[in-house]
Amino acid sequence: MKLSPKISQKVAWIAMWIAGVIVFLVLIGLVGFVFLRGIPTLSPGFLSKPITEGGILPAIIGTIYLVLLTLAIAVPLGLGAAIYLAEYAPKGKLTSVVRYGIETLAGVPSIVFGLFGMALFVIVLIGTQSILAGALTMACLVLPTMIRTSEEAIKAVPAAQREASLALGATKWQTITRVVFPAALPGIITAVILCVGRAIEETACLYATLGLSLLTPTSIFHGARTLSLHLYMLATEMPGDRGALVAQAMGTAVILICMVMLINFLAHHLSSRYMSRIRGTGSCEF
């Protein structure tokens, strides 16, 4: 049976509307469930007490440590690689092999990264499960995302702007730092946010590299646990009071979701303010 264009359009519209509604409901249901179950657990003590006393402070600090250190490693490396690939790499076999490698790396399961991190960073280089080992492993995990997203952002800068700069006697490097990088910045921020999100949410690669220390970390050579890892441990710990553990897990999840939302909001706010400055609404002072 053939539908008339008018009817098929209507059917398609309704189908997509239903899909949209379902996704929205799932999201609301999920977040709502977590919030309903988790918010009662929240208290000043929950945020400030050590894990042994039912708090999550060490996990919050561990998360911050891990994220910052991961970024400190992955952003310069990833950005450098992205700039090289987008601006300098000759179009050739080697470059396409490198690019293919990066693509593949992005698809490797994170547990494999965990094994690799344990074998190289924990056993060979550092000798113990630690924030550094975890961050190095995490950096390996997020690098493909960082590189690919930044490279796309850099490539998206119009050739006309590069030409404008080169035609004014700027060197290639000046063009990259003064024209291409500022223009690609919103995209690069997006890349960083994706990495932050990944670092916050990931557990598998940290299990064997970061350790599961219950203590508040004081150095990058100490083990720690992140919120996600803590959540995982709470949810899978068999002995003990199941009800209390699940309640704690839900509380942790609320904090986790709030953190992610806050970071996304900040990033969006920053990059839209930056865009409006360069797009000509309002004055710009830079």
């Binding site: 006309a160 702007q161 030409e163 004014l168 006697g169 000046q174 024209v179 360069i278």
Partner: peptide, 30 residues
């Protein structure tokens, strides 16, 4: 050095996404 002696204007106006002043100052600054 050649491009400093031979300026160029393109088909599509291509101001940099900066202020008017910064666009002019770009060349001398580099």
């Amino acid at each position: 050095e050649i491009r400093q002696r031979v300026g160029m204007v393109f088909q599509q106006p291509n101001p940099l996404p900066k202020s008017i002043f910064e666009n002019i100052a770009f060349g001398p600054k580099v």
